[in-house]
Design a protein around this nucleic acid. Structure first.
Lengths: 215, 215
DNA sequence: TAGATTGTTAATCGATTAACAATC
DNA sequence: TAGATTGTTAATCGATTAACAATC
């Protein structure tokens, strides 16, 4: 692995998950190989971009007329995408979206370790969802400090999100992954990643328009 | 509105939802004004970028020393983001994520009109979730054709996603909004928008790394 | 008026695309 | 060997940033 995370551009970081997703969709064994061209065509990404992106994150030299082993690429992509890390997190807001995320088994696989969940509704307290226990929101700060929580996942409603974010930041989290459809203010140095489904739809809408136009 | 959707770049289209989100987070009335500078500082987007983006989508001239009315900007942003449209859609896969999305009231507000849901589990059939009825997956194709469905939302598990996508495409949908964490093959001309939560995490992970590095 | 902000043009920077020698 | 693919360098393109006159 020639380059480290810090050398990669945000644009590249957006493409790596696409490569990984695509490779995982193939039925491959330890001998399966793939060429940049195939990746390029499958994903609709210019081949020169693929060549550079891939060459950057792997030590394996591509073999002319053949390509590279899929298994190596998968390993290298996972490494660069942080799937081998284990970042401690809490989730706040155990509504339908919160529950859905807790029930999703994929987080650990990608490097996020949700240690606990928090809510205001007493009926949820001490309930165990997919191995994660729900605690009263009052305990959020204490829990985060005592367990070195690095990331807070916010799945509350719009009204509560800012308050929760502030509590999380006061408790020392480094990053917030916000699923509530609101703009959050975070103090400098705290990383904010917004997962706004509305934005996904805007993109879809835009591309529907373009594709109709292009006909 | 000087420009239309087709004139805007994908990069701009990613920024417009951020502007809208931020403006909506303000307590504004019909007289509240905002300067590009304030937007720029709140969102951490270069002010020249903000100036251009905003000027492009509104007819209201900015007033030096003052800015523009927030209400006008909100209207213009909603227009360009398609919130005034109404695109017919179906949702396939009424698991925890599917249910969470059905329970989310925001879709209609942003221009997506989910008309029906589909699943394989008989226990769910004819159930009404937030006004949306669940039907057997066998009826998917027929329903889409008869109701001119333009978009299919996929919230199935990984295994079923590709099959569902193919059915939707065969039934004539123009776009697929995929929440299943897999790579989907779609035929040319069909718009695919992936909502992969893993990708959000990769971004967060990357920015956590950068922010630590920058200290 | 002075100063902040707008709108726009020019300069810089970075990313994408094209070209091509090297390799199996 | 011929041809496909790699890796890399050069050219182009577009987006971001800087600069500044116009305006209230």
């Amino acid at each position: 692995m020639k380059y480290t995370l810090g050398d990669l551009t945000p644009n590249q970081m957006k493409r790596y998950p696409l490569y990984l997703n695509y490779l995982l969709s193939l039925n491959y064994n330890s001998e399966t190989v793939i060429s940049n061209r195939m990746i390029s065509e499958a994903l609709g990404i210019n081949i020169e971009v693929v060549k550079k992106d891939i060459a950057l994150i792997t030590d394996e030299k591509g073999c002319p007329r053949v390509g590279r082993r899929v298994s190596t690429l998968v390993t290298d992509l996972k490494e660069i995408l942080g799937h081998n890390a284990s970042i401690s997190a809490v989730l706040v807001g155990v509504g339908s979206l919160g529950k859905a995320l807790l029930n999703y088994d994929g987080f650990k696989k990608i490097g996020l370790d949700i240690k606990a969940a928090f809510d205001v509704v007493p009926m949820l307290f001490e309930i165990d969802i997919n191995g994660i226990v729900v605690y009263p929101i009052e305990q959020l700060g204490k829990y985060c400090r005592e367990n070195n929580i690095r990331v807070g996942v916010i799945t509350t409603n719009m009204e509560s999100a800012q308050g929760v974010a502030t509590s999380l930041i006061d408790a020392g989290v480094e990053g917030i992954w916000n699923f509530a459809p609101v703009h959050l203010k975070v103090k400098k140095g705290v990383v904010l990643e917004n997962m706004h489904i509305e934005n996904g739809f805007s993109n879809l809408y835009y591309n529907l328009y373009r594709s109709k136009k292009g006909e």
